[in-house]
Design a protein around this nucleic acid. Structure first.
Length: 260
DNA sequence: ATGTCGTAACGTTTACGA
């Protein structure tokens, strides 16, 4: 089972590039972030024509997540538990029925949190605590669980080309990194680091200041696996080349394969 | 020179979020 995560930065803007990548990469499941569309306007037919089931959780203008799956989906749930007041569309989960095993798949768009300190940073940290609580609950199922998306977290200095430039940024502040590690510490495995060590691996390059041409990137899109999912992990890669194409997102896809 | 995008709206330009 191939599961990909891709922050597309607007479905309208990616209406050509996204299907082109899907046709090449052929993920069984694609978790999308920043669809920037209400559910009614999401162009589901483009994906249904390719054999995908489409589940969206959108809002007007910003945020928004979606699951595309060629495998059957069950028990779709929208919104991260823990705050009924939270209007932001950043979380969707569903059970993917694999040939051998069912996998609980969660797609997430974690708040950016800048500027820090401030109310946006407080929201980010509170959201991460809700994420930890949900992760704890999912662990209890003792089933394969995958939580993937744009975490807006640079886990370590080696995950940025210029770590000093991010020192005071919400993506890299010690409190942000600690909140991310708290989720790892309850028993989740970061798939990319389970298979690849060392610096120079990025999933995001800013549109500004020629960041792509200078390879001035950061690694902020991640797959976290429960122990039962980590047992099934066979690969994890970043589709870096996508960033050099016409009208790219500022993020590139990251994907895993599971023996499921 | 905060240098780029994408989206929305009291829109042919500005504000906001990233």
């Amino acid at each position: 089972m191939k599961i990909a995560s891709f922050n597309i930065n607007g479905i309208k803007a990616r209406i050509e590039a996204l299907p082109a990548w899907l046709d090449e990469a052929e993920p069984d499941v694609a978790l999308l972030q920043e669809i920037k569309s209400v559910d009614e306007n999401f162009p589901r037919e483009i994906f249904e024509d390719r054999g995908y089931n489409v589940e969206t959780h959108g809002q007007k203008g910003f945020n928004g997540v979606a699951i595309l799956s060629k495998l059957p989906l069950e028990d779709v749930s929208r919104g991260l538990p823990g705050d009924p007041e939270d209007e932001q569309a950043r979380w969707i989960e569903a059970t993917v029925m694999g040939d051998k095993t069912a996998v609980r798949v969660c797609g997430l768009y974690l708040p950016n949190g800048n500027p820090a300190p401030g109310p946006k940073y407080d929201y980010k940290l509170a959201w991460m605590e809700r994420l930890r609580a949900r992760a704890q609950g999912l662990l209890a199922s003792e089933e394969p669980v995958v939580m993937a998306g744009d975490y807006n977290i640079i886990p370590q200095d080696e995950d940025a080309a210029r770590p000093e430039a991010w020192r005071k940024d919400a993506l890299a502040l010690p409190e942000s990194r600690a909140a991310f590690r708290r989720i790892l510490n309850i028993g989740f495995t970061e798939a990319f680091r389970a298979r690849t060590q060392g610096p120079g691996h990025y999933t995001f390059w800013d549109y500004q200041a020629g960041a792509w041409n200078k390879n001035d990137g950061i690694r902020i899109d991640h797959f976290l696996l429960s122990p039962q999912a980590a047992d099934l992990l066979t690969d994890c890669q970043i589709d870096k080349d996508i960033r050099a194409r016409e009208k790219p997102s500022d993020h590139v896809p990251i994907w895993i394969t599971l023996d499921a």
